[in-house]
């Protein structure tokens, strides 16, 4: 098993946090995992993206030239990265702000109105964790428990943040069930 995921959005949407929580969760569940952020000049211009690979064997390249899953938090990311998806791959997009998904018949697209769901939860900034929940549901990895442990590890010191994160992850998982 090897799943390569590209998460993208604009700076401030918490894309790198999403990736980091995901990578930690995979590690805690005992998988091989890599996380590679776009860095330096690629970070300028307000966009952010990172690639997470989860596997049950040694991971060769942490780069995903053809990811299995793309998580797009904004419109430009959906446009930019749907073409990179491997044939048969999956796009999960933030339908609250992504209005148009380019046509591609060999991939599946899943709409998750993450911003709206986040507002419903009373925490507009948790859209990234909702997307993470949706991802975990769709990919089958990492487990809900692993994601929660990861949140605990990374945010456990702030109880309220940790709990809000768990609720958002659950919300995302439910949405795609």
């Amino acid at each position: 098993m090897i799943v390569k995921t590209l998460c993208a959005g604009s700076g401030g949407q918490g894309v790198l946090t999403l990736g980091n929580v995901l990578g930690n969760a995979a590690m805690l569940q005992g998988f091989h995992a890599t996380y590679l952020p776009a860095y330096g000049a690629a970070m300028r211009g307000g966009t952010a993206n990172c690639t997470i690979t989860i596997a049950d064997e040694e991971i060769a390249s942490p780069v995903a030239s053809a990811p299995d899953i793309v998580v797009a938090l904004n419109q430009p990311s959906a446009f930019a990265f749907i073409n990179r998806l491997v044939s048969g791959g999956k796009l999960i997009y933030n339908s609250s702000i992504v209005e148009e998904v380019p046509e591609r018949h060999d991939v599946e697209a899943f709409a998750v109105p993450a911003n709206d769901l986040a507002v419903e939860l009373g925490n507009a900034r948790s859209a990234n964790m909702i997307m993470l929940g949706a991802f975990a549901k769709l990919a089958g990895v990492p487990s809900r428990e692993a994601v929660f442990s990861s949140l605990k590890l990374l945010m456990g010191r702030k109880k309220a943040v940790f709990e809000a994160g768990c609720r958002a992850v659950d919300k995302g998982m439910e949405y795609l069930s």
């Binding site: 980091n20 091989h32 995992a33 890599t34 996380y35 590679l36 952020p37 780069v63």
Partner: peptide
């Protein structure tokens, strides 16, 4: 290299 520096792994 740049990738090795930026990449996270367990």
């Amino acid at each position: 290299d740049g990738m090795m520096g930026q990449m996270k792994e367990p």
